[in-house]
Every structure is written in structure tokens, then in C-alpha cells.
């Protein structure tokens, strides 16, 4: 029996979902020092946008997808205006609490509009997947893994090789210095919010065929993505990916060999362990010395 390879494939698939959502987290932490508790709702909204576009309006999938992502980017700017901008000088905690408020607001607004029944959103592929050497490869998991890889590469290229990326990096490292250098800091932060929301929305659209589209779909994923972030090292891009993947794998193997009902406890336990033993995560947080 191909037990272990199968578990590994699924674990990596689930982990890629966490990683993709975690990527959106990382950017906001780096650029604006915002820990966004509504990141999961970005995914939920992206999926619902797709349900409307390709389901209700009947727009072909490959055209609806970019429209939904662009809509999400716009939403990200709105989101920044409501939850971040008015509070940006008041420290971290007010922003954390206001993103929690936003998360409740968004989830329940969609609940009021769509009700609790999940919606179906088909994926790009007709085939559910194929078998290789006794391991069933779910096509949607494969799509998620590929997308996560592409997005990481893209993010790396943008951050390290373009002027925009350099400006974004400068903003995330030292806002005062960046604005002295003539970088439009406010614009850079808005771009980050837009990108983070678009990425979250894309993740939601990709996981929709796996988890269905429901109001609660974002909550659990985002909590895990957040955990992935901490395991990998807060605000660290490769860390978020590795953290997400290892969380997915640990969870899946934990469910198979230790306990299914407690698999979330295993994930959070791993997180607590990291927090207490190695709070800087696998890769370490970029901490600026300030005294």
C-alpha cells in the first residue's frame, strides 16, 4: 500500500494552501507591520466573487479569474482605508483589533447575503486527478502547488529585481528613511494591501473546488497560515512557504498516525512549541535594533 507517499502528497497539497495564504500575510507584516486577522476573509471573498462572476454571470472561467483577482486588489485598497489608515499612528494593537472587527463584518455580511449553505465552484480541470504508482494526485492540489511555486518566484523577482520591489522593501524596513528618499510610502503601503488581497483572493479561488465556498472557509485556513508564518519566521517569505508546507505535512501524518480529532491540536501544539522554544521561527524575523 502506498500509505506514506499518499499522505505526503496530501500534506504538501494542504500545506501549499496554507503557504499561499501565508504569503499574503507576510507582505502586510513586512510593508505595514500589520497583522491582518481578516486575511482568511480575503480568500472567502475571492471565492464568492468567482461564484458570482463565473456562476451567476456565466463568464468563462479563464476570463472571470483575472477579473476576480483585480476586484480583490481594489477591495484591498478599500480595506486599508477602513481598518489601517485611520489607525496607522496608534501602534499595532488597535490595527489588530480593527482587522478582527473587519473579519467578523465581512463573514457575516456574506452570511446574510448567501446563507450558510456552501456553494460549489468548479476548478479549471474536468478530471479530478490521476494515479501515479498508487498515489492519487488531486488535480486541484497540483494546481495549488504550481501556483504557490509561481507566486513565490514572482514575488522574489518583484522584490529583488524591480525598482517597485526595492521601493516596497525600503518602505517595509524604515518608513521614515523611505519617505526621506522620496518614496511615496502611502502608495507603497496601498499597493501592498492590494497585492495581499489579490493573492488571498486567488488562494480562495484555488481552494474552492477542494473545500467548497462557504463563509467559514477562510477562518481555519488563515489561522493555519498565520501559524505557518510564525513557524517559518515572522515576515519571512521562504519561511512562510516552508512553515506552511511543514504544517500541512505534520497535520496529515498526525491525523493518520496519532489522532484525527486532535490534528488541529497538533498543529497548534507545534506552533506553541515554536513560539516558546524558537520564537524567531525557522528562518528568523528581521528585527531592527531600536532602543
Amino acid at each position: 500500500m502506498s500509505l506514506i507517499p499518499q499522505l505526503l502528497f496530501t500534506g504538501l497539497g494542504i500545506g501549499a494552501i496554507y503557504a499561499l495564504v501565508a504569503l499574503g500575510f507576510v507582505l502586510l507584516i513586512r510593508a505595514a507591520s500589520v497583522v491582518n486577522f481578516a486575511q482568511g476573509e480575503f480568500s472567502m471573498l475571492g471565492a464568492y466573487a468567482m461564484v458570482i462572476l463565473s456562476g451567476a454571470l456565466g463568464i468563462p472561467y479563464l476570463i472571470a479569474l483575472p477579473i476576480a483577482v483585480v476586484l480583490m486588489a481594489g477591495f484591498g485598497v478599500l480595506f486599508a482605508g477602513a481598518t489601517y489608515w485611520p489607525l496607522r499612528h496608534r501602534g499595532q494593537m488597535p490595527v489588530i483589533i480593527s482587522t478582527i472587527g473587519a473579519s467578523i463584518f465581512l463573514a457575516n455580511t456574506v452570511l446574510a447575503l448567501y446563507g450558510p449553505s456552501p456553494e460549489v465552484l468548479p476548478g479549471l480541470f474536468d478530471t479530478p486527478g490521476f494515479e501515479v504508482g498508487g498515489v492519487f494526485m488531486d488535480s486541484q492540489y497540483l494546481a495549488i502547488m504550481v501556483t504557490a511555486t509561481v507566486m513565490v518566484a514572482l514575488q522574489f523577482l518583484i522584490f529583488e529585481k524591480t525598482l517597485l520591489g526595492k521601493k516596497l522593501q525600503a518602505t517595509s524596513q524604515d518608513k521614515e528613511m523611505a519617505s526621506l528618499l522620496g518614496i511615496p510610502v502611502a502608495l507603497m503601503i496601498l499597493i501592498t494591501f492590494a497585492y495581499s488581497a489579490a493573492l488571498g483572493g486567488l488562494a480562495g479561488i484555488l481552494v474552492a473546488p477542494v473545500l467548497f465556498v462557504s463563509v467559514g472557509m477562510g477562518a481555519i485556513i488563515s489561522l493555519k497560515a498565520f501559524a505557518a508564518n510564525i513557524i517559518g519566521g515572522f515576515g519571512n517569505i521562504p519561511g512562510a512557504i516552508l512553515g506552511g508546507l511543514s504544517l500541512g505535512v505534520v497535520e496529515t501524518f498526525g491525523a493518520a498516525y496519532i489522532s484525527v480529532p486532535y490534528k488541529d491540536a497538533l498543529a497548534f501544539g507545534l506552533l506553541l512549541l515554536f513560539l516558546l522554544v524558537r520564537p524567531q521561527g525557522l528562518f528568523g524575523e528581521k528585527i531592527a535594533e531600536k532602543a
Binding site: 477602513a82 481598518t83 485611520p86 489607525l87 488597535p94 483589533i97 480593527s98 478582527i100 472587527g101 473587519a102 473579519s103 467578523i104 463584518f105 465581512l106 463573514a107 457575516n108 455580511t109 452570511l111 446574510a112
Partner: peptide
């Protein structure tokens, strides 16, 4: 929409 109002209230209170 009660809970939605709840969430919006949290943001408004913070601001």
C-alpha cells in the same frame, strides 16, 4: 446582519 453590524462597530470604536 446583526453580527455584521457588530464587526463594523468594532472598527468604528477603534477609529
Amino acid at each position: 446582519v446583526y453580527l455584521a453590524v457588530y464587526g463594523a462597530a468594532v472598527i468604528l470604536i477603534m477609529v
